[in-house]
Amino acid sequence: MSLDFTSRLHLVSRRVAMLLMAGAAAASFSAAPASAEEPDLSDVTLNVGIFQEVQFLQIALTDHFKDTPYKIEWVRLNGAGGTMQALGAGAIDLSWGLSDVAVPNASALDVAPWTADTAPLKHIALLAPLDAAAYPSHVIVANTASGITALDQVAGHSYTYQEGGNSAAAALLALKSVGLTADDVDITLIPADSIPASVISGAVDVATVQWAQIQEALDDGTVTRLASSYEAGFPGYTSITARTQSIEDPKKSAAIADFLTRATAYSNWRVDHLEAVAQTYVEAQQLNPDQAARAAASAATTIVPLVAGGEGVKIQTELQDALFASGFLAREVDYSQLYDDRFADAIEAGEALGATE
């Protein structure tokens, strides 16, 4: 029997949801009393998914997320697939940094396309890269011993990426850019955290990975750069994605709005303090100063509101068309059904807050 996406997500057991929460590294901030003009959020916990443990160090560099009128639980998850599962199961309320193609892909794979009324998950903001050309989100690399030196040589070779997310989108757009499809390579799917090691060791010939995860191997010649995600036609955005159920809950929605204001101000601060951010990569990932500086710049983003006719919606609409043409999306997607614009003012408030600090 074919199940729709929402039904499949509810089949995730309560035990899996609990393990996702208990097994992830987490930190919380104590809630402060709400003012008389604002709803009392002292009983609200906002569960926020992030992707790298180094983010805990970076968040702690500032006071942006201290003294919130609600509690924040930070949950570290592995890859787009695990994050989508956690969102669907209610283990997290929102993901900060989820692939911007994960929600459209889920809609394309469902029995019926998602609409504004039926979508269980929605984009509530986009994260724009600092400089996608200079610091692309991903790079397509080959193990140097494979002898592959250009994208048009990958036919017949093992080819890996993180399924369902930006890595997969960039990988398939890269193939399309040289007239190839997934049928022309040996797709080998492995856990996201294992992808860098797999191409470094030669277990797979070609991989699409985040630049920061492969820098050292690029520097020492173990792997060869074939193309960047930007060169392959991928703009390099990510998203802040939330559960529709959380968006529609009045108290959770108020907490999300406050979170987005803080996240916007923090993101702008981060762009202006890349040297301090780079030091966290030295401490957490043992990168050398040059590698850490590049990692900090590659991960730097600013928050873009989603409004009809806005630049973010335009970019996403064009991207979905390209992904359908590449074979990444199983069918065409109407992006206007997959975002919620109610938090644009909260993001604007964060921009103003950053300007006064």
Rank of each mutant, 00 (worst) to 15 (best):
M1Q: 11
S2Y: 09
T6Y: 09
L9Q: 15
H10L: 10
S13W: 09
R15P: 02
A24W: 04
A27R: 15
P33C: 09
A36N: 06
T45V: 15
N47I: 00
G49F: 01
E53L: 11
V54F: 07
L57S: 14
D63N: 14
G79Y: 02
G82Q: 13
T83L: 07
T83D: 10
M84V: 13
M84Q: 14
Q85I: 14
A86H: 04
A86T: 11
L87Q: 10
G88M: 09
I92W: 02
I92Y: 04
D93W: 06
L98G: 09
D100M: 13
A102K: 02
A102P: 05
N105F: 03
S107N: 09
L109Y: 02
D110I: 03
D117Y: 04
T118L: 05
L127W: 04
P136S: 12
P136M: 08
I140F: 03
V141S: 01
A150L: 07
L151A: 10
S158L: 00
Q162V: 01
G165A: 03
S167D: 09
A169S: 15
A171C: 07
S177E: 03
V178G: 08
G179N: 08
L180I: 07
T181P: 08
D183I: 06
I187V: 15
I190W: 02
P191H: 06
V206L: 01
Q210F: 07
Q215N: 03
V223M: 06
A227R: 04
S229A: 15
T238S: 15
S246E: 01
P250R: 11
A254G: 10
A257Y: 04
A257V: 07
T261I: 00
T261F: 00
Y266A: 12
N268M: 15
R270M: 14
V271M: 10
V271H: 02
V277A: 08
A278D: 05
Q279S: 07
Q279E: 14
Q279I: 00
E283C: 00
E283F: 04
Q285V: 00
P289F: 04
Q291D: 03
A296P: 12
S298F: 00
A299Q: 11
A300H: 07
V304E: 15
A308P: 02
G312S: 11
K314P: 00
E318Y: 02
D321P: 00
A322G: 01
F324A: 14
R331F: 08
V333R: 05
S336E: 14
D340F: 05
R342M: 12
A346M: 07
L353I: 02
A355G: 06
E357S: 14
